[in-house]
């Protein structure tokens, strides 16, 4: 009989032995099914904490974040496109934090260097810094993507220019809209990636109001939920700053 043939697996068994084997198998099978169902039931019905999803799922997202941020490299850039590839109709997908009760002329960027030490800057201060343009495939957590064209100052250029090296050594950057309605937290390595911009231009023109005029964040290595419109305050932290969508159940990292 051939060693590897299927028929070599044939055995002669007594009927009662076959019945007993089947019975034991099904008992184990049903026991394991019950365990699996119980585990699923506990997970699915786990009371949701502040993060709007089951704490067990949140801890997996955090574990994934730890794992994938180990493999993160600022050298890996979002693919660049030519300006002619960029869409003219840039999608507007949210208006939290960009309400009408806002006077652009009175706007200033506040940079909290440390508690009680806030730098106040105008848009012209930022425009005085070297301008960087990115044309990249913007990706929304919903699943759509769009090639878009933005201009502004690199976050890394900005931080260096304003002697914020100690802040650059910290873990996270937080950003908040002037009305405090929208807020994001981003890990420092992603913030320092060379395509990450404090953005004041779209398609070569001043940023439209619904895209976050006068200044927004463009951070190609993250989903759109992190690209905060209408930056009011920037601050630095070694713990995770509050994040609007993470508090609604999304992954805090949201890294691409």
């Amino acid at each position: 009989m051939r060693k590897n043939s299927f028929s070599s697996r044939e055995v002669q068994m007594e009927g009662k032995d076959i019945r007993r084997k089947k019975l034991v198998s099904f008992a184990v099978f049903i026991a394991l099914l019950s365990v699996g169902y119980f585990a699923w039931y506990k997970l699915y019905n786990q009371p949701q904490g502040e993060g709007k999803i089951q704490p067990a799922l949140r801890s997996v997202l955090v574990t994934n974040e730890r794992l994938f941020s180990k493999f993160y490299s600022a050298n890996r850039k979002a693919k660049s496109y030519s300006k002619s590839d960029a869409t003219a109709n840039v999608r507007v997908n949210g208006n939290v934090g960009v309400g009408d009760n806002f006077d652009p002329a009175a706007w200033h960027l506040k940079v909290a260097r440390k508690t009680g030490d806030t730098l106040t800057l105008s848009l012209d201060d930022l425009k005085a810094l070297p301008k960087t343009e990115v044309v990249f495939d913007f990706k929304c957590v919903e699943g759509w993507n769009q090639v878009t064209y933005w201009g502004g100052v690199r976050v890394s250029d900005f931080l260096r220019k304003y002697n914020l090296a100690p802040q650059m050594a910290m873990g996270y950057v937080g950003m908040v809209t002037p009305d405090s309605a929208y807020y994001v937290g981003v890990d420092m390595p992603s913030m320092l990636q060379p395509q990450t911009l404090l953005c004041y231009e779209m398609n070569g023109k001043p940023l439209p109001k619904n895209q976050g005029a006068p200044l927004r964040l463009i951070i190609p290595v993250k989903y759109g939920i992190k690209h905060l419109k209408r930056i009011g305050t920037i601050f630095f932290s070694n713990t995770k700053p509050r994040d609007y969508w993470a508090e609604l159940g999304y992954d805090y990292y949201a890294g691409l």
């Binding site: 299927f6 028929s7 697996r9 044939e10 055995v11 002669q12 068994m13 007594e14 009927g15 076959i18 099978f29 394991l32």
Partner: peptide, 19 residues
């Protein structure tokens, strides 16, 4: 005493992976 021909069709590992 009734001997029957049976074949060991699916190894335990395969059944485990399947289910």
């Amino acid at each position: 005493m009734s001997l029957q021909r049976a074949i060991k069709k699916h190894p335990l590992a395969i059944r485990w992976f399947h289910w």
